[in-house]
Design a protein around this nucleic acid. Structure first.
Lengths: 244, 244
DNA sequence: ACAAAAGTGTTCCAGGTACACCCATGA
DNA sequence: TCATGGGTGTACCTGGAACACTTTTGT
């Protein structure tokens, strides 16, 4: 999306996309034992929303999601998974959208599809917090991380979309190497346990967790970590990428 | 949908719906130890497809799916679950659609949205085979049950949609009372076991299955069945509808 | 040496599998 | 009464939870 289009989309711009359909991305990162979600702020409006994307007329849905993710984070080839499609007829928020338009100097027909009902396909992405360069985009001034438990009020049903995404994550936390997308290259067993606890929202038993992770066969133990702490220093681990 | 519209939709008719978006229903029944899928045949074309539906402009996605199901089966309030949204850009089948149009005496602009790219939301429904009155609908001449393992070639990616629906079913077969939607009111333990084996595509151990079902607490045992067979007659069971 | 945290071994229990046995029924 | 299949009891296995114990490290 070029700068020109970003500032003042022409009619041509809108013709490039599937009308009435959008993608909403729940982009999850992990930092200091908190899950973080990438949230957009619209220019001069105090309105917040999930990163969204439109689908080009000849573009696969999954590709459109990857593209939206890339535009906000600069990342490619990471965990990205469709989890639900949101289609309540009253889920659009015409008022908010008009405010956003006005504050961007845009002036649409009242019946432009952007102001009407939307169906939105939800995707979850798991990303390495440190590798992300949050980048604002179309109509928005800000793109930044929010703690999962202190998300500002969002437009439309975006909070529900986040809730459903987190439930989806919980159901899939034991999937092969899911954690690999949220942690840096090497980590201690405690780091990994805290991540799982954060996603699941409950304490796990240390030794059982340890064994389960080791038994999964996806972890590789490296040399010991040198901490400055007054106790035994933990091993470092990384996810082994056996292609088996 | 009135008869008039059914035969010769006007422009008004198309304006009622969300363009570019559809619902595809995988309607699953169970009869004689086979899973059955409801398949539509288009008038005079030898083209087969899943029952589909459009979404009215002010209609919830879930409501549109219920409506599509009701129109094909006459059933309401049954298990119906969204499982995936299909959005490959090349998944439409313009050629087939044009044949269908022609054979119905319809003549659209080449760029009518019906001939272009579609995104389709997949729903699975589980229904009592015997209660269904398959009913043909818009553009179609036939609506009838097919054995899951002898489905004719379908248009678009409908076979993939079915495959994904069956995988979804397998993952959820242990959900509370799922089988209740596929079996008649009362059944033997063997009936239930065969159903599970059919969905899972594998043999289960008789005694373990028995215990697991009884332990689940959702089954209620009735009086014995009188069979004409030369051996012990089995109990009849039904799903108990404890609301807890 | 001591406290604190990491790693490992052992026990216990639940759920699932396998198998043996009993029961009911009509030929 | 026998063959057949339904129902139940029991032994076993596996994976997870709980707990004890050992190892390592800086104070």
């Amino acid at each position: 999306m070029g700068q020109q289009e970003l500032k003042k989309p022409t009619e041509d711009f809108w013709d490039k996309y599937q009308p009435g359909l959008a993608i909403d991305c729940v982009i999850v990162g992990y930092h200091e034992r908190e899950l973080k979600i990438l949230i957009m702020e619209y220019e001069n409006t105090d309105l917040y929303a999930l990163p969204a994307g439109f689908i080009e007329k000849n573009e696969d849905l999954d590709t459109a999601a990857s593209r939206a993710l890339y535009e906000r984070t600069g990342l490619k080839d990471i965990y990205l998974s469709q989890f639900h499609t949101f289609g309540k007829s009253d889920r659009n928020d015409t008022e908010a959208m008009e405010i956003i338009m006005r504050s961007n100097g845009l002036d649409f027909d009242k019946d432009h599809w952007l102001l009407r009902r939307f169906v939105s396909v939800g995707y979850v992405a798991l990303v390495d917090y440190k590798k992300v360069k949050p980048t604002a985009g179309f109509l928005s001034s800000q793109c930044s991380w929010c703690d999962l438990d202190s998300i500002p009020p969002l437009i439309q049903d975006h909070q529900k979309i986040i809730d459903k995404a987190i439930l989806y994550l919980r159901d899939h936390v034991d999937d092969k190497l899911l954690g690999a997308n949220l942690l840096v290259d090497t980590f201690t067993m405690k780091d990994l346990q805290k991540l799982h606890e954060t996603i699941l929202g409950e304490k796990l038993h240390r030794t059982g967790f340890h064994r389960k992770m080791m038994d999964s066969g996806h972890l590789e133990r490296l040399g010991k970590k040198k901490t400055g702490k007054a106790h035994r220093s933990p091993y470092l681990y990384r996810f082994s990428s056996d292609k088996e």
